[in-house]
Design a protein around this nucleic acid. Structure first.
Lengths: 348, 348
DNA sequence: ATGCCGGATGTAATCGATTACATTTTCATC
DNA sequence: GATGAAAATGTAATCGATTACATCCGGCAT
């Protein structure tokens, strides 16, 4: 059998090859690429020609090793299959990739093992910054994201007691506005469909609900508070619970802590013959794409999803490049209540 | 002003520090971590203690530079906000991150600039492999993904004429099965709502539609072919077009090339007073989560989304680790027609 | 002519790991 | 106790870029 010949790696043109071909030193090549103005015209064209001819691209690992950067940021998402986050991700991706950063998406999916793996990744210096959409500072059994001296920015889900920049919307205010809309339509009996109690968004949206009622003197009725966990399925369950109430005790309107649950609930009560909005007005929260497809289309608080992502990404870039300097600690973007077909005046 | 003291970078414990503390050479430390069995018990515990004490984690850039690997794969998605791909991504993420790979998500979003940037990234050797969900081999003005000698695997959207592994479903067969279901219910006038003509999935699903009709002697009626581009909006438009037909010419059933369009169409015809499925049976394709939430729930071909992702990821891992050896060039996963509430016998 | 200045380029150290090869240690066997 | 093979460890080259510092050179003021 013939001796296997030492394979000359084909793709690999290194800086030394370019230097040799151009008849200059490696330093000159590097400078030509990094700061063209410090090298005279003639050398520059020679070097660039050599670069083209060899098809040279710098080895990023080597560069990273030298300059202690990775040009990668990690973004932690609770669940990538959730369309809300998908659109936030688009905004993040636009901004970050335009600035030359790569994106590692950490899909937490409720798995502590995954979370720990990603924490280790960050602590190992694999990334230049982290974007947290997950409502908490990621941890592993032995350590915490803060141990990695890496810039952090949170978005969408506020993380209380932290000093890094956060980009959110005014959940309390807009939730309150949504409920006020129902009150103004004339509703006096307004149910609330909650998220998981421990979730910060749930707490804020519920606070908005209470606040709106307070202003009008309507008491918060514990019997009108339905429990869910932000998923479609619990919306369906809540719909059944609502149908179980004696007709006299039934609310004429409902505010759901997010769209998915609202849609699940509507589907259920429809199947039982109750009409939305004629018999029951429903308001959601988030403004997911589907809220505009479902039947009836959903009155909801539309979050600026792309913008939330883009703004958070911009703050992170600022942090990463200027080293320090959080621009503002808490940025709030405007969210808007959009009136669609799921709300109307209560039956007379 | 006081001279700024040379800041001793805090996080950075390097292998030499560990070696010193443990009283061994750097080689031993490296070996202890990579192949513990070649180092004797006693040294090993000493080294591990030193690792713990210093909080050492290997610098990945340095390692990558040395071993010419990055442990990162790039996955190219047409549109990350599309829930179909989001779930495929979950499967990919599960498999890849369990094997220790990081994931860079290239959200093409129809932007050639972005695509070019990612091609350059890959050509620069930034990733160990690429997963293509985008139906074509990515290009930039000057080059093509094949120029980067990097393992490729395609999934979901078949790329014809290529020799790398591909993981898809049998689009023709299942589309045909879906239409056959309508025929078996007794429909004789079955419309087709298409995707963009140039798309391979569209071509295959349309082929399935024709094939099913051929078997039964029903002719393909050009007047019953509605054009769309896979988006909800064009589904709505197609619904209007359908309503514009004279009642006598209206089909009793429709097969849509994907779920989003089917749902848009149903919404439109409902608004006009047509009942689905009583007046019109509808079958979709993909089985997105929403197909089970909408009203009526959609009879559709459910693709094994997670599994498509996981399988493609596994093939890529095989390719990356064994160097060569495509296991099988074309893997087809089973997709299933799920009967729900949007189909029934035609009106008598 | 001399010296100095500054712009262009080159030399070589450096980033932090992996690993081929060299060296030392261990230990079974004669 | 000598011998050699195998096991454990150490030494130093290497991956491919960036960049501090050194060098060279031309021009200008004295």
């Amino acid at each position: 059998m013939a001796k296997r010949p030492r394979v000359t790696r084909p793709g690999a043109a290194k800086i030394a090859d370019v230097a040799r071909l151009a008849g200059v030193s490696v330093a000159t090549v590097s400078r030509t690429l990094a700061r063209p103005e410090v090298v005279i015209e003639e050398t520059r064209t020679r070097v660039l020609a050599a670069v083209r001819e060899t098809g040279y691209t710098p080895n990023i690992s080597a560069r990273n090793l030298r300059v202690r950067k990775t040009m990668v940021v990690l973004v932690a998402v609770p669940d990538i299959a959730n369309t809300f986050f998908a659109e936030v991700l688009e905004g993040i991706d636009d901004t970050l990739s335009a600035a030359g950063y790569g994106l590692i998406i950490a899909n937490l999916a409720g798995s502590p093992e995954k979370e720990a793996r990603y924490v280790d990744l960050v602590c190992a210096g694999q990334v230049d910054g982290v974007l947290l959409l997950c409502g908490h500072v990621m941890r592993s059994p032995n350590r915490d994201l803060r141990d990695a001296r890496v810039p952090l920015v949170a978005a969408c889900e506020y993380i209380s007691g932290e000093s890094f920049p956060q980009v959110t919307i005014d959940n309390i205010g807009t939730a309150s506005e949504a409920v006020r809309h129902l009150v103004e339509l004339g509703h006096r009996s307004i149910a609330y469909l909650s998220g998981p109690k421990s979730n910060i968004l749930e707490q804020q949206r519920f606070a908005g609900y209470r606040q709106a009622l307070q202003g009008t003197g309507i008491a918060v009725d514990e019997g009108l508070i339905l429990r869910g966990d932000f998923t479609f399925r619990t919306g369906v369950d809540a719909g059944r619970a609502l149908l179980g109430l004696k007709p006299a005790a039934r609310p004429t309107a409902l505010f759901a802590a997010n769209d998915e649950m609202a849609i699940g609930l509507i589907k259920t009560v429809h199947a039982a013959g109750l009409q939305v909005p004629k018999d029951l007005s429903v308001v959601g929260f988030d403004g997911i794409a589907y809220s505009n497809y479902c039947e009836p289309t959903l009155t909801t608080v539309v979050q600026p999803r792309r913008d939330l992502g883009a703004t958070a990404a911009a703050e992170l870039i600022a942090l990463m490049t200027t080293g320090r300097a959080p621009i503002r600690k808490g940025t709030q973007l405007p969210a808007k209540l959009i009136l669609r077909d799921s709300t109307c005046r209560p039956p007379a």
